[in-house]
Structure formats: C-alpha cells, structure tokens
Design a binder for these strands. Sequence first.
DNA 1: TAGACGTAGA
DNA 2: TCTACGTCTA
Lengths: 155, 155
Amino acid sequence: RFVNTGKQIIGPVPGVEVGDECKYRVELTIIGLHRQTRAGIDFVMHGGRILATSIVASGSYEDKISNEMSIIYTGQGGNYMLPRKKAYDQKLKRGNLALKNSLDEQNPIRLIHRLYSSDGQRKYVYKGLFVVTKCFRKRGTRGKLVWEFHLRLLL
Amino acid sequence: RFVNTGKQIIGPVPGVEVGDECKYRVELTIIGLHRQTRAGIDFVMHGGRILATSIVASGSYEDKISNEMSIIYTGQGGNYMLPRKKAYDQKLKRGNLALKNSLDEQNPIRLIHRLYSSDGQRKYVYKGLFVVTKCFRKRGTRGKLVWEFHLRLLL
DNA sequence: TAGACGTAGA
DNA sequence: TCTACGTCTA
C-alpha cells in the first residue's frame, strides 16, 4: 500500500492515512512520512528556502498537545527534557527556520505523535496535516531560549 | 516464520536460517538474533557468568573475515575505525568478558555480517554458529590495547 | 543512568 | 563530517 518514491513530499503521502502507526522511527523514514531518522523536524528546499514537511512529537521537548486539533511544538536544539543533555539557546536554522518559513507559506505539515499503547508499547501515530499559526521565541524551563511553534489541524 | 520468545537464546534461533537478511540492526533485535541495538556483542548470564550469544561484524572495528569458515573479531570499546571517536584501552568486561568466557565454555555464537548488495544497499546477513578458538590482547592500529577473538564455523 | 560495530540527510 | 525529539539492554 505504501508508495515511497524516495523524494520528499509536501502534504499527504500516497498510501498513508491518518491513524497509521509505526513502532520505530526508521519505519517513518522508509514509508516516506518523515525522512529524518532522529531529528524531529523534516524539511525540503522549496522556492529558494526551506519549508517544514513533517514533525515528530515524542515528548523529548516541552510540547503541548491539548487536543487533536492543535499542538504547541518546541523547536530543535539544546533543550531536551533529558537532564544529561547540555542546554543551549536554539538557533533559527535547520528545522526551526523551516517551521518559521512554513508560517509564512502556510504549507501543510504532517504531524506524527509518539504515544504508548495500553500494553506500554511505544508507537508513532500519523495525526494528519497541520499548519503553523504562530511562532515566537521564549525562555524555556531550562533557562535557554527556545522557539515555540503553534500548529492547528487542517480541515 | 520468526518465533521470538523475548528471551535470550544460546545457539540457533527458531525460524531463522543461515543466509537470512535484514536491512536494519533493530530488525535483528526484533527477530531475536541479536538483541543489542548498537553494541556488537550480545550476551547472557549463564551459570553465574556471562557468555556471548551473538556478534555483529560491521566493519567499524578491525575485523578480518578471510573466508566463510573463520573470523577474527575485535572486542568492543575505544578502537572504532572512525577517527573522530576517542581511542582508549579495551577493558575485559561486558561483551569482551563474555567472549572470553565463551572460549572456555565453547558455546555456539551466532555471527551476523554486515555487507553490501550489488546495488550498494547495506544489509545484515546471518552466517551461522561459530565458536571462539583463541583470545588474546594486542596493540591495535590506534595504539591502544584491543581484545582479539578468533572464531570458526561450527560444522 | 550510561553504553553501544546505528542511520539518514544536510 | 556532523547533527538529530533513536533504542535496546545491563
């Protein structure tokens, strides 16, 4: 059913439907839903600048998913929840820059959410297409600057 | 066909045959051939001491596979071929201790070999059961002590 | 909590 | 060559 062409896609991925699940990050890469094996934000060069194509919310940063309609997503770099990782100010580059550009462009972004089954098994669930509605910089709980992105479900 | 019981096994794994292939390390973990997702030596506590159960030869250390019958396998720790990794003397613990114990015990050890298909795709191939025939410490090419293990195919 | 022959893409 | 919301076992 999956038809990964190997090329990065903005928007829906053929053969992948909302609610589809994976156990490992590398499976998301294989089916073309999110090519980055570890990074939370995937992006593509489009019209001379990078745009975000998909994000993975796994709980490693301070994300907030209040309901199925909206999500507050923390940018990448230097603000892991894991205390052993060194904290530093996030830069407006790579994934963070891509998400900021996507606010201007209003392009659809695939959201993958890591959660746990009733039996405690970790899994990644495709939640559909979202757009960035807001983006600003704030001070994170670890005292360093973070980029915060607000997204809402595309209807 | 695979029947991973979740328990560590010494010897053949039910449903897995010599020549079986995987694309990712995590698949080896899933089918029970090699539970460690990154470490090259897997082991189990047996009769009060640890014994090696499987090894993965991926070329990250100075391994030598002259033919299908025998392999020279370098122990774990501090001697990656990658120059950016810091070099240090290998210790006789964890996987290295397990392989040394397996020399005494002469228990079968599964060998998985990472190689490349004709199309350049990386893959892990199960090569069968081996026993440790020799084990000693030497000075590696990076100037640090390494444990070297000689294994040969069990007929 | 840390260690370990991981991965793909920029 | 480096980055990155990895992933398992001890």
